[in-house]
Write a protein that binds this DNA or RNA. Structure first.
Lengths: 132, 132
DNA sequence: ATGCGTGCAAACGATTTGCAGAGAA
DNA sequence: TTCTCTGCAAATCGTTTGCACGCAT
């Protein structure tokens, strides 16, 4: 039984998570976000961070990325297309232009697939991290 | 201390895992592979399945896909490019033609990124699953 | 007053690892 | 013989959930 948040009530924690996620700038894990919030005085529970993060992801206000070791979250605009350039060193993520969606559709057609979603992630080092 | 397999010794279990993975055809979880092997009489340990699967992935003989719920493995040729069309119903995966790699390089350049790897996964329903 | 969201701790499920024994080289 | 791989069980680790209480509505 998934105990998802119904998102009917406005709470301090919800705002705190939302703003902390935006402030993070890139992809962060739930645990790390909780850590940052805690060290800034917010006495929020880890479970609540998870619940709010999942709620944000469901509502389209955050997108997620699965990596070995867990799930990462990042603030985003609802409806945004999830194509990123992710820095493996600092976690910064940059939205990139829509790729050749026609190519995807064509490949799917050719194989008799009906596409429901697609994901493109490009990993590397951002300008700052590749210096020095 | 990661206790990775050094892959110096030829064992029955190694062969068993390799062939079971090939036989699976699509992406399978370690647990499911272990289950299939067990029900076919192979008395192999789950830990060994994990160890061999990870070894295969490291050597490039298997590629992996992270999904909510765990990691999936699939047999592949070393050096293969990891672009798939994955059926969300039956797990079948089809290799798709290389995408517009130039587009990726261009986007990266534009943002000052150095690309180390990229990942493209397209999810949907395969022909069989979308019928009836 | 009503009942949703929170916090804590316990529960979970996937994956990893310590250790002693089996088997390949 | 020597040293790697296996198997089992226990340990990890990220994440989810049960429950009682506080607070938004």
């Amino acid at each position: 039984m998934t105990a998802t948040i119904r998102d009917r009530r406005h709470t301090a924690q919800k705002e705190a998570v939302r703003s902390a996620l935006s402030a993070a700038g890139g992809f962060v894990s739930a645990g790390e976000l909780h850590l940052r919030m805690s060290s800034q005085g917010h006495g929020i529970g880890l479970a609540t961070v998870y619940r709010q993060l999942n709620a944000l992801a469901e509502n389209g206000h955050a997108d997620t990325l699965l990596v070995p070791g867990g799930q990462l979250f990042r603030a985003c605009e609802p409806g945004a297309h999830h194509h990123h350039l992710v820095c493996e060193s600092c976690g910064t993520a940059v939205e990139i232009d829509p790729p050749d969606e026609d190519w995807i559709a064509a490949s799917a057609d050719r194989n008799g697939f009906t596409v429901t979603r697609h994901l493109v992630e490009v990993f590397g080092q951002c300008a700052e991290c590749s210096e020095g």
